[in-house]
Design a protein around this nucleic acid. Structure first.
Length: 196
DNA sequence: CCCGGAAGAG
DNA sequence: CTCTTCCGGG
Protein backbone atom coordinates (compact mmCIF):
# COMPACT_ATOMS: atom_id res chain seq x y z
CA UNK A 1 0.00 0.00 0.00
CA UNK A 2 1.04 3.56 -0.53
CA UNK A 3 3.29 2.29 -3.28
CA UNK A 4 6.15 2.15 -0.86
CA UNK A 5 6.30 5.84 -0.38
CA UNK A 6 7.24 6.01 3.24
CA UNK A 7 8.37 9.05 5.03
CA UNK A 8 11.97 8.06 5.29
CA UNK A 9 12.36 7.93 9.04
CA UNK A 10 12.67 11.40 10.33
CA UNK A 11 14.12 11.14 13.78
CA UNK A 12 12.64 13.66 16.13
CA UNK A 13 14.98 16.58 16.35
CA UNK A 14 15.93 17.21 19.94
CA UNK A 15 16.81 20.83 19.55
CA UNK A 16 17.70 23.50 17.14
CA UNK A 17 19.65 22.75 14.04
CA UNK A 18 22.86 24.58 13.60
CA UNK A 19 23.73 25.18 10.02
CA UNK A 20 26.37 27.52 8.75
CA UNK A 21 26.57 29.20 12.10
CA UNK A 22 22.88 29.86 12.22
CA UNK A 23 20.36 28.25 14.46
CA UNK A 24 17.28 26.88 12.84
CA UNK A 25 14.50 26.55 15.37
CA UNK A 26 13.20 23.07 15.18
CA UNK A 27 9.66 24.28 14.75
CA UNK A 28 10.77 25.26 11.31
CA UNK A 29 10.94 21.60 10.48
CA UNK A 30 7.74 20.43 12.02
CA UNK A 31 5.65 19.57 9.06
CA UNK A 32 2.11 19.34 10.26
CA UNK A 33 0.05 18.98 13.37
CA UNK A 34 -1.75 15.73 12.86
CA UNK A 35 0.37 13.17 11.09
CA UNK A 36 -1.36 11.56 8.18
CA UNK A 37 -3.96 14.19 7.77
CA UNK A 38 -2.51 16.86 5.62
CA UNK A 39 -0.20 16.35 2.69
CA UNK A 40 3.45 17.25 2.94
CA UNK A 41 4.32 20.49 1.28
CA UNK A 42 7.25 20.85 -1.02
CA UNK A 43 9.06 23.49 0.98
CA UNK A 44 8.71 21.32 4.08
CA UNK A 45 10.26 18.51 2.16
CA UNK A 46 13.10 20.69 0.94
CA UNK A 47 13.78 21.82 4.48
CA UNK A 48 13.71 18.23 5.57
CA UNK A 49 16.34 17.19 3.06
CA UNK A 50 18.42 20.24 3.88
CA UNK A 51 18.37 19.24 7.49
CA UNK A 52 19.95 15.86 6.97
CA UNK A 53 23.61 15.39 6.29
CA UNK A 54 23.03 12.29 4.21
CA UNK A 55 21.58 14.49 1.49
CA UNK A 56 24.46 16.92 1.42
CA UNK A 57 25.47 15.67 -1.97
CA UNK A 58 21.96 16.10 -3.29
CA UNK A 59 20.91 19.41 -1.86
CA UNK A 60 22.73 21.73 0.50
CA UNK A 61 22.76 25.19 1.98
CA UNK A 62 24.85 27.67 0.14
CA UNK A 63 27.51 29.14 2.30
CA UNK A 64 27.38 32.87 2.51
CA UNK A 65 23.80 33.76 1.86
CA UNK A 66 21.48 32.81 4.64
CA UNK A 67 18.57 30.72 3.43
CA UNK A 68 20.09 30.05 0.06
CA UNK A 69 20.40 26.49 -1.10
CA UNK A 70 21.66 24.62 -4.12
CA UNK A 71 20.16 21.55 -5.68
CA UNK A 72 23.23 19.61 -6.59
CA UNK A 73 21.39 16.66 -8.03
CA UNK A 74 18.07 17.79 -9.50
CA UNK A 75 17.12 14.35 -10.74
CA UNK A 76 17.62 12.82 -7.35
CA UNK A 77 15.68 15.51 -5.51
CA UNK A 78 12.86 15.06 -7.97
CA UNK A 79 12.98 11.31 -7.49
CA UNK A 80 12.80 11.63 -3.72
CA UNK A 81 9.97 14.14 -3.96
CA UNK A 82 8.13 11.89 -6.36
CA UNK A 83 8.51 8.97 -4.03
CA UNK A 84 7.14 10.91 -1.11
CA UNK A 85 4.17 12.14 -3.05
CA UNK A 86 3.64 8.87 -4.88
CA UNK A 87 4.28 10.56 -8.18
CA UNK A 88 6.75 8.34 -10.00
CA UNK A 89 6.66 10.62 -13.03
CA UNK A 90 8.07 13.53 -11.10
CA UNK A 91 11.08 15.24 -12.56
CA UNK A 92 12.99 18.46 -12.03
CA UNK A 93 10.99 20.28 -14.66
CA UNK A 94 7.79 19.71 -12.74
CA UNK A 95 9.34 20.17 -9.35
CA UNK A 96 10.84 23.47 -10.38
CA UNK A 97 7.43 24.62 -11.59
CA UNK A 98 6.13 23.98 -8.10
CA UNK A 99 9.03 25.96 -6.70
CA UNK A 100 8.19 28.81 -9.04
CA UNK A 101 4.73 29.02 -7.54
CA UNK A 102 6.48 29.91 -4.29
CA UNK A 103 7.78 33.13 -5.76
CA UNK A 104 4.46 34.90 -5.52
CA UNK A 105 3.79 33.36 -2.16
CA UNK A 106 7.07 34.81 -1.02
CA UNK A 107 8.32 31.59 0.40
CA UNK A 108 11.14 31.32 -2.07
CA UNK A 109 12.84 33.33 -4.72
CA UNK A 110 15.38 32.54 -7.36
CA UNK A 111 19.01 33.42 -7.11
CA UNK A 112 19.47 34.65 -10.61
CA UNK A 113 22.48 33.53 -12.47
CA UNK A 114 23.16 30.65 -10.14
CA UNK A 115 22.08 27.32 -11.49
CA UNK A 116 19.68 25.27 -9.35
CA UNK A 117 19.95 27.86 -6.64
CA UNK A 118 16.99 29.19 -4.68
CA UNK A 119 16.63 31.10 -1.50
CA UNK A 120 14.14 30.91 1.33
CA UNK A 121 12.63 34.17 2.43
CA UNK A 122 13.26 33.39 6.04
CA UNK A 123 13.45 37.03 6.95
CA UNK A 124 9.82 37.29 6.05
CA UNK A 125 8.65 34.30 7.97
CA UNK A 126 7.88 34.11 11.62
CA UNK A 127 6.09 31.67 13.80
CA UNK A 128 2.48 32.10 14.61
CA UNK A 129 0.68 29.10 15.89
CA UNK A 130 2.39 28.18 19.08
CA UNK A 131 -0.29 28.02 21.76
CA UNK A 132 -1.14 31.48 22.94
CA UNK A 133 1.97 32.93 21.49
CA UNK A 134 1.52 36.24 19.89
CA UNK A 135 4.00 37.95 17.75
CA UNK A 136 5.35 41.41 18.17
CA UNK A 137 5.33 43.83 15.32
CA UNK A 138 9.08 43.79 15.00
CA UNK A 139 10.71 41.61 12.37
CA UNK A 140 12.30 39.42 15.04
CA UNK A 141 15.41 38.36 13.18
CA UNK A 142 16.66 36.68 16.33
CA UNK A 143 14.24 33.90 15.72
CA UNK A 144 16.58 32.62 13.12
CA UNK A 145 19.77 34.47 13.75
CA UNK A 146 21.45 34.17 17.07
CA UNK A 147 18.68 32.11 18.53
CA UNK A 148 18.77 31.18 22.17
CA UNK A 149 21.08 28.24 22.84
CA UNK A 150 18.24 26.01 23.84
CA UNK A 151 14.52 25.94 24.22
CA UNK A 152 12.14 28.08 22.36
CA UNK A 153 12.71 31.45 20.86
CA UNK A 154 11.81 34.29 23.08
CA UNK A 155 8.39 35.31 22.00
CA UNK A 156 6.17 37.58 23.91
CA UNK A 157 2.77 36.08 24.68
CA UNK A 158 0.61 38.95 23.64
CA UNK A 159 -2.20 36.84 22.34
CA UNK A 160 -3.09 36.70 18.72
CA UNK A 161 -2.96 40.06 17.19
CA UNK A 162 -1.99 41.60 13.95
CA UNK A 163 0.09 44.65 13.43
CA UNK A 164 0.75 46.94 10.56
CA UNK A 165 2.76 45.24 7.89
CA UNK A 166 1.70 41.78 8.85
CA UNK A 167 -0.57 39.49 7.07
CA UNK A 168 -2.62 37.38 9.39
CA UNK A 169 -3.35 33.79 8.72
CA UNK A 170 -5.08 32.40 11.74
CA UNK A 171 -4.96 28.67 12.18
CA UNK A 172 -8.36 27.34 11.50
CA UNK A 173 -10.13 25.55 14.26
CA UNK A 174 -9.97 21.82 14.10
CA UNK A 175 -13.19 20.28 12.86
CA UNK A 176 -15.07 17.64 14.71
CA UNK A 177 -15.67 17.24 18.44
CA UNK A 178 -13.20 19.29 20.36
CA UNK A 179 -11.64 17.29 23.17
CA UNK A 180 -11.34 19.24 26.40
CA UNK A 181 -7.61 19.48 26.29
CA UNK A 182 -4.86 21.48 24.74
CA UNK A 183 -3.64 20.78 21.27
CA UNK A 184 -0.98 18.09 21.60
CA UNK A 185 1.31 19.39 18.90
CA UNK A 186 1.57 22.98 17.85
CA UNK A 187 1.16 23.19 14.14
CA UNK A 188 3.64 25.05 12.09
CA UNK A 189 2.14 28.13 10.65
CA UNK A 190 3.91 31.10 9.29
CA UNK A 191 3.42 34.78 9.29
CA UNK A 192 4.25 36.59 6.19
CA UNK A 193 5.63 40.07 6.34
CA UNK A 194 4.51 42.42 3.65
CA UNK A 195 7.03 44.78 2.24
CA UNK A 196 10.75 44.50 2.83
C1' DC B 1 18.00 26.33 -17.72
C1' DC B 2 14.39 29.23 -16.31
C1' DC B 3 9.88 31.48 -16.83
C1' DG B 4 4.83 31.66 -16.06
C1' DG B 5 -0.06 30.49 -18.40
C1' DA B 6 -3.51 26.99 -18.58
C1' DA B 7 -5.97 23.06 -17.14
C1' DG B 8 -7.05 19.75 -13.96
C1' DA B 9 -6.42 16.44 -9.86
C1' DG B 10 -7.50 15.67 -5.07
C1' DC C 1 -5.46 25.59 -1.99
C1' DT C 2 -0.99 23.01 -3.49
C1' DC C 3 0.78 21.14 -6.52
C1' DT C 4 1.10 17.99 -11.25
C1' DT C 5 1.26 17.98 -16.02
C1' DC C 6 2.15 20.12 -20.33
C1' DC C 7 4.06 23.56 -22.91
C1' DG C 8 5.43 27.84 -25.75
C1' DG C 9 8.78 31.13 -25.20
C1' DG C 10 13.33 33.56 -23.74
Amino acid sequence: MHCGCLAEGIPAAPGNYWISGVAFPDWAYKAESSPGSRQIQLWHFILELLQKEEFRHVIAWQQGEYGEFVIKDPDEVARLWGRRKCKPQMNYDKLSRALRYYYNKRILHKTKGKRFTYKFNFSKLIIVNCPLWGVQAQPLPHLLLGAPPLGRPALVPTGVQSEVGMKVALPRALPGPAPAQEAPVPALCLWELIGL
